[in-house]
Write a protein that binds this DNA or RNA. Structure first.
Lengths: 223, 223
DNA sequence: CACCGTGTGACAGGTCAGTGACAGATTCAA
DNA sequence: TTGAATCTGTCACTGACCTGTCACACGGTG
C-alpha cells in the first residue's frame, strides 16, 4: 500500500511514518500543499492522510481540487480542533474519514487500512486462496492452518499480489507499492529477490506466482 | 446479466426468479449445493444468490470452495436467522452482501444490481470477442475462461488488433505500434512471425486474423 | 509459369529473471 | 548500550526463454 502523508509538524509526521512503514505501508511525506501536489502528480496513491492547517494553505483546498479533477483516492483528514461544522463541511468536500489530533497511532493505522480495504472492494478482511488464508489486518498468513512468518516486505508484496490476483502486476507497479521515495535507490532487482523468497514460503500451498517475462508477475491458484 | 440462484424453497425461488427475469436478468435455479456446483462448472455467472441452509449442505461451504479456487464472482448470501457472528463469518468467507429472509423483492433486485455494477466497474475495459476475453489492464487473455499466456510482443500486437478489430491494419502500422526507435533495425518479417504465433494461440476461439495480401491484417470474429 | 508477398521451422543471440553469498541496517532482548 | 539475530538490498553469476533473422516452402496473381 502506498500512502501520502501531508503534515507539517515534523514530530507527528515522523511518528506516524515510522509506525506505518514498520507495518509495511510505503509512506511519502509532504510538508506543504505545494509539495503534496507535486507528489500527487508524480504517482498515484492508495490512501492520503491530509492535515488541514498547512503553512501555505488549507488541506481542504487540496482535497477540493482533487475531487474537482475526479480523483477519488480515499482521503483521511487530520486536524487539531474539529467543530461539528468543520466535520460536516470536510465530509461534504469528499473526505472519507477524519481524525482529531492528538490521535492514537493504532487507530490511525486501523482506519487507513479500512479505507484501503474499502477501496479494494473487500468486505471481509480474511482472504482464502488454495490452502492459504491471508489476513491483512492481523498480518498473519496461514498455510493449512499453520502460521507462516513473513517479513514486512514479504507481507506487503504478497498483499499486493493477492489483492490483484489473476492480474499481471508489472515490476514497476509492485515497486511503487513496496517502496517510498525515502527508500530511494533501491534496485528493481529487489522485487525479483522478494518474489523468490515468497515463492519458497508459498511452496505447497496451491498458490503460485507466475513469471511473465517482460510483463510482470501474476499470482494464481493452481487448477 | 446472468444470475445463479441457489435456494431450495420453491415458492421463494419462483417469486424471485419471476421478478428478476421480468427486469431482464437471466436466472438459473439450483436447489442443492451439488446442483449449484454443476451449474458453476458449466458456465460463469455475474452474480450468485446463495441460501445458507440447503438440503445437502451449507451454502457457506460452497462459497468457501469457490473463493479457495480464486473465483471472485460476487455472492449474496440469504438466510433466515442471521446473528452478528454469522454475519461476520460469512463476510469473512468472502461473501459480498447478505440479506435476511423474509426480504423485499425490490431490495434484492437493487442489491444484486449494485453487486453487478461494481463487478463491471472492476472489469473496466475488458473486451469479449467470441470465446476470448481480453483485459488490457490485467494483461490477461482468456480462452473459454482458461488463461492463455502471451509474451510481451504478442500482447502488444493482439491489443493493437483488438482495438482496431474489423478494420485492416497495415503491416507498417502494426510495426510502428510494436517497435520503438530503440528496437531499430527490426525487419518487417517480424510482424508475420508474431501474427503466426498469435494465430496458434488463438486457435479454436472463434476469433481469427485474416490476411489481406498487400494491405495488412484484420482481426475478426467468426460468423 | 514466374514473381512477390506471406507462412513457418529452426536457431543464435541477448535480455531478463532466479539465486546464493554477503554486508549494512534494523530490531529485540538483556 | 551492547550484542545477537534477523531483515534488507546489492552484486555477480547462471540459466531460461523471448526475440528476431534466415532460409525456404507456399500460394495467389498477373
Amino acid at each position: 500500500m502506498r500512502l501520502l502523508l501531508v503534515e507539517d509538524t515534523l514530530d507527528v509526521a515522523e511518528a506516524v511514518i515510522i509506525r506505518l512503514e514498520r507495518s509495511g505501508i510505503a509512506c511519502d511525506l509532504a510538508r506543504t500543499v505545494e509539495e503534496a501536489r507535486g507528489y500527487l502528480e508524480a504517482q498515484p496513491y492508495d490512501v492520503i492522510v491530509l492535515d488541514i492547517n498547512l503553512p501555505d494553505g488549507l488541506g481542504t483546498d487540496l482535497l477540493r481540487d482533487m475531487r474537482a479533477k475526479g480523483d477519488r483516492t480515499p482521503v483521511m483528514m487530520l486536524t487539531a480542533q474539529f467543530s461539528v461544522d468543520d466535520r460536516v463541511s470536510t465530509l461534504n468536500l469528499g473526505a472519507d474519514d477524519y481524525l482529531v489530533k492528538p490521535f492514537d497511532q493504532r487507530e490511525l493505522e486501523a482506519r487507513v487500512r479500512a479505507l484501503y480495504r474499502r477501496e479494494q472492494g473487500d468486505k471481509g478482511n480474511e482472504i482464502t486462496l488454495g490452502t492459504l488464508t491471508f489476513n491483512p489486518t492481523a498480518k498473519v498468513l496461514r498455510k493449512e492452518g499453520v502460521p507462516v512468518t513473513l517479513t514486512r516486505r514479504e507481507f506487503s508484496l504478497l498483499e499486493l499480489l493477492i489483492r490483484n490476483r489473476g492480474s499481471v502486476m508489472s515490476k514497476d507497479r509492485l515497486y511503487e507499492g513496496l517502496f517510498s521515495f525515502n527508500d530511494a535507490e533501491v534496485g528493481l532487482n529487489a522485487i525479483e529477490l522478494y518474489i523468490g523468497r515468497l515463492r519458497k514460503k508459498l511452496a505447497g500451498s496451491k498458490v503460485h506466482i507466475e513469471t511473465l517475462r517482460g510483463l510482470g508477475y501474476k499470482l494464481d491458484v493452481d487448477a
